[in-house]
């Protein structure tokens, strides 16, 4: 057993107790604590079929305002063209455009993207306002060939592969909780990021596991997700 525990740092996922109950092994990466794996040897295969991962402790941020698009562009961010789409950055980070004036910036799975820290450190430009996305929203990932089918039990937007392309974003209701759903495939495996109000994290996690049960979906650690790329 690893000696890493989620409580050794202040940034804890709202779900850390649930992870411990599931027998999670945690990893520490630059002060970030994530579920490495839940101990199953088939976790990679699980992630290809239907897996649920908690990425809530990975860095993310957001910016909003009339000046936001220009300002983040000036900081080196590649903006997606259309609202409700996202673009992968040169440092592997991900930027989603939620409206003409609102952006969401997500780290890569290894938290190697330096963009988020840079954006958070420097002072924002005119008519640009930072949003505390790392605190306001949890960040879960649903992966695998069954993901869209599972989503159809809890989300009214058609997320099937041929209807919801990679890099598309839907702001919608997942299990009646307002959510941002981003399709961001990992390698050839379909992957959906879900960002939902952090206070509903446990609710959403439980709903997803319930909806996944029919397809033998299970929680997977970040190691399995990284292996997909």
């Amino acid at each position: 057993m690893s000696s890493i525990t989620p409580t050794q740092v202040t940034r804890r996922s709202q779900l850390y107790r649930r992870h411990s109950e599931l027998g999670a092994e945690f990893e520490e990466n630059n002060g970030l604590i994530l579920v490495k794996a839940y101990g199953s040897e088939t976790e990679l295969a699980q992630a290809k079929e239907l897996g649920l991962a908690d990425l809530s402790t990975l860095p993310r941020t957001g910016f909003k305002g009339a000046g936001a698009p220009d300002w983040v562009t000036a900081q080196g961010v590649t903006l997606p063209r259309q609202p409700n789409t996202c673009a992968v950055q040169s440092d592997a980070g991900l930027v989603a455009k939620l409206s003409y004036q609102e952006l969401l910036v997500l780290s890569d799975l290894n938290a190697t993207s330096s963009m988020i820290e840079k954006l958070n450190q420097c002072s924002v430009g005119e008519q640009t306002y930072a949003l505390p996305r790392a605190d306001s929203h949890c960040w879960l990932a649903v992966t695998g060939s069954q993901a869209a089918e599972m989503f159809s039990k809890i989300c009214a937007v058609d997320l099937r592969a041929h209807k919801f392309a990679n890099a598309e974003v839907a702001q919608t209701s997942v299990a009646k909780a307002n959510s941002i759903v981003i399709r961001h495939d990992l390698g050839s495996t379909q992957c959906f990021y879900i960002l939902t109000d952090v206070s509903a994290t446990e609710f959403l996690w439980d709903c997803l596991l319930d909806a996944m049960a029919e397809y033998q979906g299970k929680p997977v650690g970040i190691e399995a997700l990284r292996a997909l790329v």
Binding site: P83, N84, S99, A156, V157, A170, Q171, T172, S173
Partner: peptide, 10 residues
């Protein structure tokens, strides 16, 4: 106008 066609419950 921003998010496209959705169920009116949204």
């Amino acid at each position: 106008p921003l998010n496209g066609p959705r169920n009116i419950s949204e």
